[in-house]
Design a protein around this nucleic acid. Structure first.
Lengths: 204, 204
DNA sequence: CCTCAATGAGTGGCTATTCATTCAGCCGTA
DNA sequence: TACGGCTGAATGAATAGCCACTCATTGAGG
């Protein structure tokens, strides 16, 4: 039904279908919630048979895992890259925030999965947070500490707490954006948050 | 099995059992997650038969609703009361924050249900947020606006955004506290958050 | 005796996962 | 070039297990 390269014939096909199923799953999870989504829904959304899903994923849960892993990996990579291109710690934090909200603002379905569906279970939260979120928080924290050493930020502040505050504020912007009926751009909120945040943590 | 007042005989009994079931549900939901919790688990935790649950609640979902409604109502009432006893807008916000974290810090199971389980579905989020969260955010917002009028807070800031930032920061403190393996007091975090927050939003 | 809260075994509906079957493309052979 | 398996990706009907919810029955209190 689908044409494929001849050598290494499985790779391109596999990647295609895996990706299609993942994209379908994001859409379905976003609309119905993880627990109310049927594997059959995902399959039909992806245009494959029910059983095909199990050729690419061990279980429904693994699909959710994969969504998280892939997205978080991308996000962190993008974040690091951005950090490498910036000097001023204040601007670094601004970049992280902007990237964070841009990424979610560009894909509402993915945002719903991240802000809502992934939070819906302590089990997921613990597993996931250990890996991905913690790393992300550390990215923020170490950037802040860098700024403290540079004398830009108030030295007496606990960097861990500061990181959580910034993350929490951004996270809430995203969640509110999803739940809001009004349609507005998410990314520009980053500046409003950063304004207050930087004003609160800057030295002098 | 349980003794009761003679007149109006249903009220005391009903209240007792309803409350017992709710308390049990909080515990069970906190440990297994809403979707992985069986009604039978709740019943046995509450020390009643499966069917008894349905004498007090229409469905499993209604139990979750009730937990949210009751707790949110209490929290908002407590918040309003506290606000009435305070003058300075800065102190008002500090009180709200402290109350917020104290309440969650005092009951870990309830906190898990609030921070994790209640977020796990867009459907819930939309229904709930419309009612409870929005009201809570408004409480913060109007307090902030009061402070703006009094010249305490920077007048150019968007109060709605400011409210979300504060709420988001507190919310993240709570979520992190739940997921953390280390045991620490949650309430004192309020001061650290408020320090940075107030520093960020204060006039001058 | 009544009444009615409480019980808990049974039912119905649902859905994740499995697996026997199909079939498209490919290769060796004539 | 034409043919006849062969491979394994894809299918989707069937299974197996789970669990919210019902309701006929019980028995304590009055």
């Amino acid at each position: 039904m689908r044409s494929a390269r001849s050598l290494n014939s499985d790779r391109p096909i596999v990647a295609d279908k895996r990706a299609a199923i993942l994209r379908a799953a994001i859409r379905v999870f976003a609309h119905n919630g993880y627990f109310n989504s049927k594997v059959a829904d995902i399959a039909s959304e992806a245009g494959v048979a029910d059983g095909t899903v199990y050729l690419y994923f061990k279980s429904k849960e693994e699909i959710l895992h994969s969504i998280f892993d892939r997205s978080m990996e991308e996000a962190i990579a993008a974040g690091r890259k951005q950090l490498a291109q910036t000097e001023d710690p204040r601007e670094k934090l601004r970049s992280i925030a902007l990237l964070h909200l841009e990424r979610l603002g560009d894909d509402r379905d993915l945002a719903v999965v991240f802000q809502v569906e992934l939070r819906g279970s302590t089990k997921f939260m613990e597993e996931f947070s250990a890996a991905g979120f913690a790393e992300y928080l550390n990215l923020i924290r170490s950037t802040f500490e860098e700024g403290q050493r540079a004398g830009v930020f108030r030295p007496e502040l606990n960097a861990k707490v500061v990181a959580k505050i910034l993350f929490g504020a951004l996270d809430e912007m995203a969640t509110n954006w999803i739940l809001s009926k009004r349609r507005y751009k998410l990314a520009p909120m980053a500046d409003q948050v950063l304004d207050i945040f930087l004003n609160g943590v800057s030295a002098k």
